[in-house]
Design a protein around this nucleic acid. Sequence first.
DNA 1: TTCCTCAATCGAAGCGCTTCGACAAGCTTC
DNA 2: GAAGCTTGTCGAAGCGCTTCGATTGAGGAA
Lengths: 330, 330
Amino acid sequence: MAGPGRGVTIADVAARAGVAASTVSYVISGKRSISPETAGRVMQAVADLGYHPHAGARSLASRRAGVIAMMFPIRDGMHLPVLMQFAAGAVAEARRHDQDVLLMTADEGPAGLARVAASAMVDGLILMDVEVRDPRVEVLRRLGLPNVLIGFPADSKDLTCVDLDFTAAGRACADYLADRGCGDIALLGAAEAVYERRTGFAERVREGFLGRPGVRAEVRPCPNYPTEVQRAVKELLAARPDLTGLAVHNEPAVGHVMHALADAGKRVGEDFHVVVIGPDEVAERVHPQLPSVLVPAETLAQTAVRHLMRKLDGLDVPDSTLLEPQLTIR
Amino acid sequence: MAGPGRGVTIADVAARAGVAASTVSYVISGKRSISPETAGRVMQAVADLGYHPHAGARSLASRRAGVIAMMFPIRDGMHLPVLMQFAAGAVAEARRHDQDVLLMTADEGPAGLARVAASAMVDGLILMDVEVRDPRVEVLRRLGLPNVLIGFPADSKDLTCVDLDFTAAGRACADYLADRGCGDIALLGAAEAVYERRTGFAERVREGFLGRPGVRAEVRPCPNYPTEVQRAVKELLAARPDLTGLAVHNEPAVGHVMHALADAGKRVGEDFHVVVIGPDEVAERVHPQLPSVLVPAETLAQTAVRHLMRKLDGLDVPDSTLLEPQLTIR
DNA sequence: TTCCTCAATCGAAGCGCTTCGACAAGCTTC
DNA sequence: GAAGCTTGTCGAAGCGCTTCGATTGAGGAA
């Protein structure tokens, strides 16, 4: 099955099936009609020999590499588990379209994009963690390499962007808290670095959260580590003694926030309300369980890959796709 | 710089430099000696045109793809941040050797290995999170694709394996606790699923931890989420009232373990000792700071990639590389 | 000067695939 | 039953690169 000797070529398959190499190619690609008998014999030969087309040869001849690149942020303050989910979702979806995924890191920057584009190593590109002013975007535009962005740069004209509607997510949190009578609310967000970079989603959450009229609201960055989270919560409570509602958009912090609130004598779900933006597990596995807005990393990744595939096939896709956030009450 | 039109070929470079295409190739690869003047002109032309060799053509002609695959575990209970560090380290090191990294997930299993090998899509492979009995290992053996494993399967004969010496890490933790007079110790490890899969490192930590004579020791799996961690700690303390030393090999749990211990009235650093296997931040950012054994994901990744590169160049590498753990006291 | 060596370069032959145009049969259609 | 379509298949060209001789001149040994 795995083929013993190295290098089963299309010629080997053709010989075994008693047809021309081009016929084998057409059977595999389905680009010309082939009689069922011939096709059957060819497929059999393919299976018998464990044939897989040589990727390089194929890309050379067809100008399609069968690979897409994902440029990953590996940076301070990014929320890792979500990234992993994203990667897993993207690879899974790409494989469904018979594509592989090349992993790039943001360190390579714009030059990396130019490199993979010029070497025809990949057919398309998914760019993650897009910043409001992102130098890579400009390069991408003139490269002409089909691409999809996760996130929205300042000027998203002519680009295909996909993201959760973070503004709506922020608004949903504010609404949830306000509806429970909180007139004084705050959001603990990602680490400071994320804000400094002007990562799109952080700004949009803020915008949505602060937009609710008739409520006093504030957004603060929040570190990821136990003692610092505790301190941040303490400071917040000291600064805003009338605070009764809190949104947390920082996964590893949630458990510690809950602790700090308990230490401060707040009874969550009674005189104090908390809502989470993050994975279900995080919201479920604290006591009490919290309402939450899911960041649908896997769906996002799938959508991005699908859009990219459509672009590769010359089909059109919406310029901008915003996934509707869903607030789950527990 | 980024090249305007698509498809600058070696012929374009050759024409501009006034040499034959083969000469350009030799300048780039350095496989034959070329006069400095010619080389200079060629390099200039390369830069002027923004030439990058077509990856497919190159792989077809040279039987080297310039890509290595990493097969990633995206599974329950794995500790994500460490994986990310690993990925980042591997990509960085690979780029230093002018290689790219193809991302695969363990879902594709053995068939995925066969596929990338047969299609000559990658030159080599790094396999992560190897289990004691791993079905992929057998396939790998007969595929003949150069590879490096992170972790050790039961039979590591003829394989190149790299890992932290987890046995020594477990032992170091036991020793640390015993040296502080703890005669009754326990280790809280990864989630149960990790043990069920018989992931190598978990078993080896256990072995090392339990090996210290004259100490009553035990290893327990530990979930990752706040309330469950609390419960696990409570159960442990109830079952072992004389417990005075604890090792934690589960990053997200550390903060919550500390809380649970405080709740139980244990004074860590005084009548009770805790040591962590995990990243420095995790150990530093709790109160009190804890001693810890670092899992050097980046070094591990670098080592793996370097070994793989050497294998690709036909050089030999040690069959088994165990990184010495370092216990940092804070 | 002649012969040999060596460094520097060129040209051509593939690598394994896709794709285009051609062609032989088997059908219609009048 | 000739003219035109289809359908299924083949052969050849070529994608852009590497690599293996072959070739050319220059320098040294004789």
